[in-house]
Design a protein around this nucleic acid. Structure first.
Lengths: 209, 209
DNA sequence: GCTTGAATTGAACACTTGTTCAATTAACGT
DNA sequence: ACGTTAATTGAACAAGTGTTCAATTCAAGC
């Protein structure tokens, strides 16, 4: 019963996912027709329905997969709680930028096409987004507790920080003048700054250079 | 020839604009049909074409008007160049938040529906967006020059700052627990922080409190 | 009341939409 | 070579798209 062939249909499904990610991001979910999507991978429109039951299911699959991968990846790289909050926040910024570096379109979709989701599907994705947001809230809250960060509202700051970073794919072009490591550092500093000024534990008497 | 009546058609046009702003923001440009839009203001779909030649023209009108108003309003409130850059940045943040406070949907549209614009229309709107962005770039660049701000890249920082603030309408609800003045202050501080730490002109030997 | 011109409409047009399905092709195990 | 099942297709469907236009309603001036 189980097919042992290499082409078990997963390849095609992956191709659909890739094309859909690119084209949804470029033209938008509503503006892209199933025929145009199928054409992109040299298939008839009807063939798509062997892999996904509806157009909506494709979008949901993309967003769900993206969020699952995002949360799993963060779970694997998350710094331990004992690390100072500011360092954890830096680690988060680095992770977020790096993880999305070759996932520009997915990131773009994951907040641009939320309103194209069915209420049920939207609720599911929103839960995952909330979970991700909570990771930042926790870091910032810990920072407030330990006195190293001083934003006035952890959740608002978390959202602002994420919005700040999510703005990147809207303008960044690979052939631009700024290299990935530079972007990484830039955004790290801005995120850190947005979360509040560095607060020294002791007030040192600095000797001028 | 000139009608002297109060209802010279401007009223209806305004109603169309208002409904389009709300519904485009809620459902997206592609997802909203002319029939549904017309229905919202108790008109037949055909009547819309007396006020706008195409659906695309409505969207463009909305975005163009928004950007024109935004730039004009900033021009009126822009602090003079002699003011320190950090204060000017604070003034900008305050302006941006306040100006969009009752223009949530327009702000949302102005970056969500860019890709629904015709290439020609897009180019026009992009020019205005660039002009607005340049205002922030100038402030930050001045800050770097005068030594009070120290971000590593003025344009990237400007974009990040705008993205940070534009994230607000995506989650803020009027019936939420945070008041407008609080939001204003929160975002001001985050923007200021993202643009770099406060750099004292002289390095003082601080006497602990 | 009549005329004039603007405002609005319903029906129509040509086309596209997501989706289904019977029929066909392709690829595999034996 | 055969049979089986997966993969793909073209045609069709009902509904909806933006847009046009002749016909109609509406409001105002005389």
């Amino acid at each position: 019963m189980a097919r042992t062939t290499g082409s078990d249909g997963t390849r095609t499904k992956t191709a659909i996912r890739a094309a859909a990610t690119r084209l949804f991001a470029r033209y938008g979910y509503e503006a892209l027709s199933m025929r145009r999507l199928a054409e992109e991978i040299d298939l008839g429109a009807a063939a798509l329905y062997r892999y996904f039951p509806t157009k909506q299911a494709i979008l949901f699959d993309l967003l769900k997969t993206h969020m699952d991968q995002l949360l799993a990846a963060w779970d694997a790289k998350r710094p331990p709680d004992r690390i100072p909050a500011r360092e954890r926040l830096n680690a988060f910024a680095e992770f977020h930028i790096r993880h999305h570096w070759d996932r520009n379109d997915s990131l773009f979709l994951s907040y641009m096409e939320l309103r194209s989701l069915t209420p049920d599907n939207f609720a599911q994705i929103e839960d995952l987004r909330r979970a991700y947001e909570n990771e930042v809230v926790t870091i910032i809250s810990d920072g407030i507790e330990e006195g190293s960060l001083r934003p006035q509202n952890a959740r608002v700051t978390a959202r602002a920080v994420i919005a700040l970073m999510n703005g990147l794919p809207a303008w960044y072009r690979e052939d631009g003048p700024i290299s990935p490591p530079e972007i990484e550092k830039l955004y790290q500093q801005m995120v850190s700054g947005a979360a509040g000024p560095v607060i020294p534990k002791e007030i040192p008497c600095s000797t001028p250079a």
